[in-house]
Design a protein around this nucleic acid. Structure first.
Lengths: 196, 196
DNA sequence: TTCATCGGTTCATTCACCGAACCCAGCGGG
DNA sequence: CCCGCTGGGTTCGGTGAATGAACCGATGAA
């Protein structure tokens, strides 16, 4: 751990939080989870982190209760990582960090804009819906109700497929699409037998 | 840098922010700056970070425009580190991190509570003043208007003097007090000839 | 049988962090 | 003048974490 023992004696909730999410790559993993990334390979492609580090971070986040690892297919056995309640509660941290970088680091253009999905309004500086007519006017919009749209600073033609998928407007938390391995059965669009 | 080159190619304001404040100790330095810590020795005593690391972080934060280093006495020459505008804008990040740790890490008691200094009300989850009668009701309270009070999880008798000073309720950003080196001139309180 | 994919683990190298020691300028006292 | 103290660092050897390339194993497709 980057912080471990050293922050342990700190009498501070901020230090406690940093013990969990303060290591290199960790907050970017959580960010990607909000964007809909769930699989090891997708995190890997999008982050560019070393494989060993990514594996360690995912495991640590599962241990900390930020991510939940769950089986999404049996054969071959494959797991995905999804945000828990506690993980979802990290959204204000990411929003604040992103807003600071956009507003306070010179030469940073807006990369991604966040809109209230219900009314289409771009969220205010505190993550609240600023639309006077909206039922949730003035209150913080939960991540599941946020639509992410590309901003001016985003590379329009990125190399990796995950970044390309994230160029389109999308609801937060909705998983990235993946072709089932045998993609081309033109007349039978592969109905999943039972989701549960 | 903990992140440097690796995050540079990331098309993301969050990653950009983490390049600046994502390294070990950095956000705790900024936190202490909000609490009123300004001197190298006080950061050192309160954080317990290695001296070299602290010096590097302070320098990096100055370079990034988060802290401003300025002379507060000429003889001997002594500098202090104070938050810039951009540094003050990090308050929502720290508040969100602290709130997450307090609410989502099991066994964490509130360490510090933040109140609107004007009306005494404890701030809401978004850092806003929840008091209906307050002129700034519902709006985010700037750090300069926040009073910090000790919470239940705080060690009532810490070892280092900085932690002890931070036990008393205090306004954010107000510098820690320091005795002038020659303290006891009872009738002649050492008027500095000319400050400039 | 062979190949490809997914999700890792292993390993040697590099890098950052650690903490103790050292350094230096500017006082203040004798 | 010399000594020691204080504040604010720098230097340095040892250690642990990050890196990236290679390897591994299970499954399923060709």
């Amino acid at each position: 751990m980057a912080l471990g023992k050293d922050y342990a004696h700190q009498q501070c909730s901020i230090a406690r939080s940093l013990e969990v999410v303060g290591e290199r790559w960790t907050l970017l993993v959580v960010r990607d989870a909000f964007y809909g990334v769930r699989r090891y390979g997708d995190f890997l492609a999008h982050l560019g982190a070393p494989r060993a580090v990514l594996a360690a971070r995912l495991q640590a986040l599962v241990d900390a209760g930020v991510l939940d690892r769950r089986r999404y297919q049996e054969s071959p056995p494959r797991d995905e990582y999804v945000l828990t309640e506690a993980g979802l509660a990290l959204w204000p941290v990411l929003r604040a960090l992103g807003a600071w970088g956009r507003d306070r680091i010179p030469g940073t253009l807006p990369m991604r804009r966040f809109h209230h999905a219900a009314c289409g309004t771009e969220l205010g500086p505190g993550g609240e819906c600023p639309s006077a007519g909206c039922p949730s006017h003035g209150r913080a919009v939960p991540p599941a109700d946020i639509e992410m749209r590309p901003g001016a600073g985003l590379d329009p033609d990125p190399a990796d497929p995950v970044s390309r998928a994230l160029l389109r407007p999308r609801r937060l938390l909705v998983p990235l699409e993946h072709e089932p391995p045998a993609g081309n059965s033109p007349a039978a669009p592969v109905v999943v037998p039972d989701g549960h």
